[in-house]
Simulated scan of single mutants.
Amino acid sequence: MTTINTIIFDLGGVLIDWNPEYVFLDAFQGDHKKMQWFLANICTTDWNENQDAGYPLNQATNDLIARFPEYENLIKMYYGNWENMLGGSIDETVHILDSLVKLNKYKIVALTNWSHETFPIALKRFNFLSWFDGIVVSGEEKTRKPFAKIYTTTLDRYNIKAKKAIFIDDNLRNIEAAKKLNINGIHFKNPKQLIEALKTYNIYI
């Protein structure tokens, strides 16, 4: 087995709890069905990911209001109340990160789909983001996972050899894209599963 010398973490869903439902469940007065319809049809994942790739938040909001003027107030809430979508750190995974940093054996990098306009909020809130040797933010790169460019940018910028790296992400789509570039992948499900998966690469914490 190739010796691993680099570990690449996704942030949202792995180290940081982020969920639009924290805002919209209240907006829909606890009506899950109406909230889920809105997030599936108006402020969709695809729409948000476009901003993750660098599209301006204000422009994206106005574009959507032009299409769905009857939902103007709710659409404005998406980025207007974005900070309330941050549920906090996923502490057990942060502990894993801390343990890996303290081993002082690995280059540790973050690769995240995140708007460059909102990422500074996360930097202020989560001290552990300062532990990384580098962070690649999709909004700053004008591309995002699962497109190959953001992975190759990460490899080149931090002098990472794909076969000696592991990428940890909660989205299987992003793991599969990394594997096409010969980056090892762990599909994150929970912290305990991650600890066991790391052992398969002879990484013990």
Rank of each mutant, 00 (worst) to 15 (best):
T3L: 08
N5I: 03
T6P: 06
D10M: 00
L11F: 04
V14S: 09
D17H: 14
W18E: 12
P20G: 04
P20H: 06
E21R: 15
V23E: 04
D26N: 13
F28V: 06
Q29H: 07
Q29M: 09
G30L: 04
M35I: 03
W37F: 12
L39R: 04
N41Y: 03
T45H: 12
D46L: 07
W47S: 00
Q51W: 00
D52K: 10
G54R: 01
G54T: 01
P56Y: 13
Q59T: 06
D63G: 01
L64Q: 05
L64D: 08
L64V: 01
P69L: 00
Y71H: 08
E72K: 06
L74T: 11
Y78N: 07
Y79M: 03
N81Q: 15
N81I: 00
E83D: 12
E83Q: 14
M85V: 11
L86E: 10
S89N: 03
D91Y: 02
H95N: 13
D98K: 15
K102V: 08
L103G: 11
K105T: 02
K105D: 06
K105S: 04
A110T: 00
L111A: 06
W114S: 02
W114R: 04
S115I: 10
T118I: 06
I121N: 12
A122M: 13
L123D: 12
L123Y: 05
K124F: 06
R125M: 15
F128V: 11
L129A: 04
S130A: 15
S130R: 15
W131C: 15
G134Y: 09
V136E: 04
G139T: 00
E140N: 14
E141C: 13
R144C: 07
A148P: 05
A148K: 13
A148T: 12
A148Q: 13
K149F: 02
I150L: 12
I150A: 14
T152P: 11
T153K: 10
T154W: 03
T154S: 09
Y158T: 02
K161H: 09
K161R: 13
K164D: 15
I168M: 10
D169I: 05
N174R: 02
K180T: 08
K180D: 08
I183M: 10
F188Q: 09
K189F: 05
P191M: 03
I195H: 12
A197M: 13
Y201L: 08
N202Y: 14
